[in-house]
Design a protein around this nucleic acid. Structure first.
Length: 587
DNA sequence: GCCGTTTTCGGCCCGACTGTTTTCAGTCG
C-alpha cells in the first residue's frame, strides 16, 4: 500500500522514494479508472526514474535544476515533483484517491487480480465489500460467480488467492532463494532433453530482493521440461501448465515460472525474461526503428529470424556492446553500450582483500587463524580483522586490554605467514552523539578503522546525519560500515542525508562500505552509483562472522556492479601495501 | 503523459495461459 508523505507542509524533506510511491499510486488509481494506458505507463516510468535518480529532487530544485531534464519526466510531472518538494502534497493524488475505493487498490495488488476484476468486485457485489475478508466471504458464499466475467472456477481461484495473500511473503532476499534456484537448475539440467537452462529475471540481475524465480530452458521437447518442473519435489501448488510454460509455487512460498524454448531462441528468451521490463521496452523500440521485431523467440525481419541463439548476437545486431544483466534497468546502459562506454564492472576476482571481518574475539565463530586461512583459500591476499569495540556488549566488544592482545596475535600471525596479511582493525561504534567508542591513541595503531552505527537508528534526519558526519570528522576513521543500517525487509534505512555524508567522505578521503551480509547489502545500488558520481571511494566488506561468510563478498560485488562500479572505484582491489599508503594519506 | 534524423501530433512492446466466451478479455511477465 502506498501513502503520500506524512506531515504535509512540514520542513521534513520529501525524498525521491516518496515521490516514486506517489507516482506509483497514481498509476494504480488511473489503472482502476481505466484511464489512458500510456498515461499510466508515463507515471510508472516516472516512478522508476525517481527511484534510481542520482540526486534528490529537492536538492536538484534547490540548486536551480529542473526535474524536466530527467528521462520520462516532462513539464507536467516536473511540476508535480516541484509541488511535492515544496508542499509535501500532491493535488493530483489527493483528488484521485476519493474516486476509487481503497479496497479496489488493495485487491489489485493481489497476484492474479487486475484492475478490471478489482473494480468489478468492489462495485458488483452486494452488499458492497469493505475489506479483503468481505470479498473472500462473498467468494466462499458463491456470490462472485454471478458477476459478469466470473464463473465457478474463477470464483474458486479468487478465494484461494485471497487466502494465500493473507500469509504471503511478498519478496525474498536474493540469498534466501539461491538454494531453490540451484536445486531447480540441477534438476532441469539432468533432464535429457534440456540443452541449456538458466535463472533469468531479477535474480539474474542481482536485485537485492526477488519476487519469484524465472527459469529459461532450451529444449526441442519443451513440454517435457515444464512437466519436470511441475513434478519437482518442492512444488506446493501448480498455477499454470502449458506446453512451453509452467508456473508453480514452492513450499516456502517462492513462485517459479519456467519457459522452455528451442535452442535457436534461447538467447532471446534469456534476454526477454531477464528484463528488466524497462530495458526490454527500450530494446524493442530500437527494433521497431530498424523495422525489426523482437520477442522471446528471436529478432525477426518479417518472417526471418536474424538473431536469437545467444544474447550477444542480439545486442550486436543493434550496435550495442553486450550489457551485463546487473545494468539492465534502462538507466543509461543502452546509451553507454551504443557508444562503447559501458563500465568495466568490478568482478569478484578483482577483490584482493576483505576489510570487514570478525573473529571469536568478539561475536564471530572462528579464530583469527581460521578466518585468515579461509580467506586465503578463497584467493584473498589480506583481511582486516575488525572486531567490535567495547560498547557492543552483546557482541563481546573488545576493551583496550583485549584489543592490545589481539595486536600481538596479529603480529605473530603475520610473522609466521609472510604470504598473507592480516591488517589490524576495529569496527568502532558511533555513539548517538557522534563520538567514537575507541580512543584516538588506540585508533592510531590500527591499520583500518571501520566506524558503524549500531544503536539509535531512529534519530531524526538532522541528528542522524550530524552524528555520522562527526564520526567521519575523526582523522582515523577510514570506512563507514553499512552506512544506512537497513535490514532488508525488516528495518528501514536510517534517515540520513546521504548527499552530505558523501561530500564529507570525499573531503576526508573516507570510504563508504558496501556490506555484503545478505540481509544488509548496504549501500544499495543507487547509492553506489551516487558515490561514484560524487567521487567517493567504496570498500567491500563481507562482515564475515564465520569462515563460510566470505561468500558474502559475492553479494557485495553484485551490489557494486548494479551500481556501475569498476575495480578502481573500490579500495580493496588494491594490494595491501598501496591500501595502507592510501589510509595513511587520509589521516 | 512523454517524446521527436518521419518533431508539436500521433504514436507509444509482445506473447502465453486462463477462464469465460463463442471469438476474446484479463492478467502476467
Amino acid at each position: 500500500m502506498t501513502r503520500a508523505p506524512k506531515n504535509p507542509g512540514r520542513s521534513e524533506k520529501v525524498g525521491n522514494q516518496d515521490i516514486a510511491r506517489a507516482f506509483d499510486e497514481i498509476a494504480d488509481l488511473l489503472e482502476l479508472e481505466s484511464d489512458n494506458p500510456f498515461r499510466i505507463r508515463a507515471y510508472r516510468n516516472a516512478a522508476r526514474t525517481m527511484r534510481g535518480a542520482p540526486e534528490e529532487a529537492a536538492d536538484m530544485i534547490a540548486r536551480g535544476g529542473d526535474p524536466d531534464d530527467l528521462p520520462g519526466i516532462g513539464k507536467d510531472l516536473a511540476a508535480q515533483i516541484a509541488e511535492m518538494v515544496s508542499s509535501g502534497r500532491l493535488t493530483r493524488l489527493d483528488r484521485l484517491r476519493p474516486e476509487v475505493p481503497a479496497l479496489a487498490l488493495a485487491l489489485s495488488h493481489v497476484p492474479g487480480i487486475g484492475p478490471r476484476h478489482a473494480m468489478d468486485l468492489c462495485e458488483g457485489l452486494k452488499p458492497r465489500p469493505q475489506t479483503l475478508d468481505d470479498v473472500l466471504a462473498a467468494a466462499l458464499a458463491g456470490k462472485v460467480r454471478a458477476l459478469p466475467g466470473f464463473g465457478r472456477l474463477s470464483e474458486q481461484k479468487l478465494a484461494e488467492r485471497l487466502q494465500v495473500e493473507q500469509k504471503r511473503e511478498k519478496r525474498f532476499k536474493w540469498a534466501s532463494v539461491r538454494p531453490y534456484a540451484e536445486a531447480l537448475l540441477k534438476r532441469l539440467m539432468a533432464e535429457p532433453s534440456v540443452e541449456a537452462v538458466a535463472v533469468a529475471g531479477s535474480y539474474r540481475r542481482r536485485k537485492e530482493t526477488v519476487g519469484d524465480l524465472d527459469l529459461i530452458a532450451a529444449s526441442e521437447t519443451p513440454a517435457r521440461v515444464t512437466k519436470s518442473l511441475v513434478a519437482a519435489p518442492d512444488v506446493d501448488r501448480v498455477l499454470a501448465e502449458g506446453p512451453t510454460k509452467a508456473s508453480v509455487v514452492l513450499r516456502g512460498g517462492v513462485q517459479v515460472d519456467l519457459r522452455a524454448v528451442p535452442r535457436e531462441s534461447y538467447g532471446a528468451a534469456l534476454l526477454y525474461f531477464t528484463g528488466s521490463k524497462a530495458h526490454n521496452i527500450a530494446l524493442r523500440r530500437m527494433a521497431q526503428q530498424r523495422g525489426l521485431k523482437i520477442n522471446e523467440y528471436g529478432v525477426f525481419r518479417g518472417e526471418e529470424r536474424v538473431a536469437g541463439a545467444d544474447e550477444a548476437s542480439i545486442y550486436r545486431l543493434f550496435g550495442l556492446d553486450e550489457i551485463p544483466p546487473e545494468l539492465r534497468e534502462d538507466s543509461g546502459e543502452i546509451d553507454a553500450a551504443a557508444r562503447g562506454g559501458l563500465p568495466r564492472l568490478v568482478g569478484l576476482k578483482d577483490i584482493r582483500g576483505d576489510l570487514h571481518v570478525h573473529t571469536n574475539a568478539s561475536d564471530g565463530a572462528n579464530t583469527l587463524q581460521e578466518m585468515a586461512q579461509a580467506a586465503r583459500a578463497r584467493g584473498l591476499d589480506y583481511i582486516a580483522v575488525t572486531d567490535h569495540s567495547q560498547r557492543m556488549r552483546i557482541a563481546h566488544g573488545l576493551n583496550r586490554e583485549r584489543l592490545l592482545a589481539q595486536f600481538e596475535a596479529i603480529d605473530r600471525f603475520n610473522e609466521e605467514n609472510p604470504d598473507f596479511t592480516v591488517l589490524k582493525g576495529a569496527e568502532v561504534d558511533i555513539l548517538p552523539d557522534g563520538t567514537l567508542d575507541l580512543e584516538d591513541d588506540l585508533m592510531r595503531w590500527l591499520d583500518v578503522v571501520v566506524a558503524a552505527v549500531h544503536s539509535d537508528f531512529g534519530l531524526p534526519r538532522d541528528k542522524q546525519t550530524e552524528r555520522v558526519l562527526r564520526a567521519l570528522d575523526n582523522r582515523f576513521v577510514f570506512i563507514l560500515a553499512h552506512p544506512t543500517g537497513r535490514l532488508l525487509l525488516e528495518r528501514a534505512p536510517g534517515d540520513l542525508d546521504m548527499a552530505r555524508v558523501m561530500r564529507a567522505a570525499r573531503a576526508r578521503g573516507c570510504c563508504l562500505e558496501i556490506n555484503g551480509q545478505p540481509e544488509r547489502l548496504d549501500l544499495n545500488d543507487a547509492h553506489c552509483r551516487m558515490a561514484k558520481a560524487e567521487g567517493v571511494r567504496l570498500s567491500i566488506g563481507s562482515d564475515a562472522h564465520r569462515t563460510s561468510d566470505f561468500a558474502n563478498l559475492d553479494g557485495a560485488v553484485a551490489q557494486a556492479r548494479r551500481g556501475w562500479l569498476e575495480a578502481r572505484d573500490i579500495v580493496n582491489t588494491l594490494p595491501s601495501g598501496k591500501l595502507k599508503a592510501l589510509i595513511a594519506a587520509s589521516r
